[in-house]
């Protein structure tokens, strides 16, 4: 168990010392919040910022998680992974350390977006909204960082990974319930959006913001985390014998 933390700490230190990139990854979600949330003329609600904030929070986590796969790609390319695999520490702790770090980093970035949203006047139902939102975001982060690290295990170079990343990230966001409620969607999009795991997280967070708790959204995410982590461990063991 403690080995997971050692690997986590290594990534955390490296990230915190990387200077500008700590903040640069926040530019995109912040721009969405301000330019889309405040400026888009929307008719179905008179406070679009309130509507879109859960979507932007989940988007921050989604992009941070998918981006996180590059960490493992570089560990693989630069020879770190082989050195770690030759250590007596349980090998899976490499995988879990990565997933934990990527999800944690996503939470820190979401915090900045959350603070911005509150400063822009987004209302939350109660004080309990914050910790529950963190919980949902964390579970969602674990889900997508596990997917990202699994893909990183399967591809061999950075270019194919980043192609995969840019292919998946925006479509996942646009086919979710981030931008509009299900009633406003065309029929075909509604079906896709209701299957998209990104929507599960957004709907759950959105419900929290208005004081409800979506139990099935939460369970849906947890069930997917269990499946994806199992696949992750399987792929990791296969890739590293």
């Amino acid at each position: 168990m403690k080995e997971i933390f050692y690997y986590f700490e290594r990534d955390l230190k490296r990230w915190m010392r990387s200077g500008k990139s700590v903040f640069s990854s926040l530019a995109m979600p912040a721009a969405w919040l301000v330019f889309v949330g405040l400026a888009l003329p929307i008719r179905f609600t008179d406070n679009y910022l309130d509507f879109i904030t859960p979507g932007i929070l989940v988007m921050t986590m989604l992009f941070a998680s998918l981006q996180g796969g590059t960490l493992l790609i570089f560990d693989k390319i630069l020879g770190f992974l082989n050195k770690f695999l030759a250590l007596p520490a349980p090998r899976e702790s490499i995988l879990f350390g990565k997933i934990l770090f990527i999800a944690f980093r996503g939470l820190l970035q979401s915090t900045v977006i959350l603070v911005m949203a509150v400063l822009l006047g987004v209302k939350m139902h109660s004080f309990m909204t914050v910790p529950l939102t963190y919980l949902v975001l964390f579970i969602f982060g674990v889900l997508f960082s596990a997917i990202a690290t699994t893909i990183a295990l399967l591809v061999d170079d950075y270019d194919s990974y980043s192609a995969m990343n840019s292919m998946a990230s925006m479509p996942l966001f646009f086919t979710s319930s981030a931008l509009m409620p299900y009633e406003m969607m065309p029929q075909w999009l509604r079906i896709i959006a209701s299957l998209n795991p990104v929507s599960y997280a957004i709907d759950t967070v959105r419900a929290l913001f208005s004081g409800n708790f979506l139990l099935d959204g939460m369970f849906g995410l947890i069930a997917m985390v269990i499946v994806v982590l199992t696949v992750s461990v399987y792929v990791f063991r296969k890739a590293t014998v």
Binding site: K2, E3, Y6, R10, R17, G79, L87, P88
Partner: peptide
């Protein structure tokens, strides 16, 4: 391995300490 895989953003001591902990 031949790749010279040391973390350049960590100090020398931190690099070695990581392995001491993992071992």
């Amino acid at each position: 391995p031949q790749d010279m895989a040391v973390d350049i953003k960590l100090t020398g001591r931190e690099n070695v300490m990581l392995y001491a902990r993992l071992y």
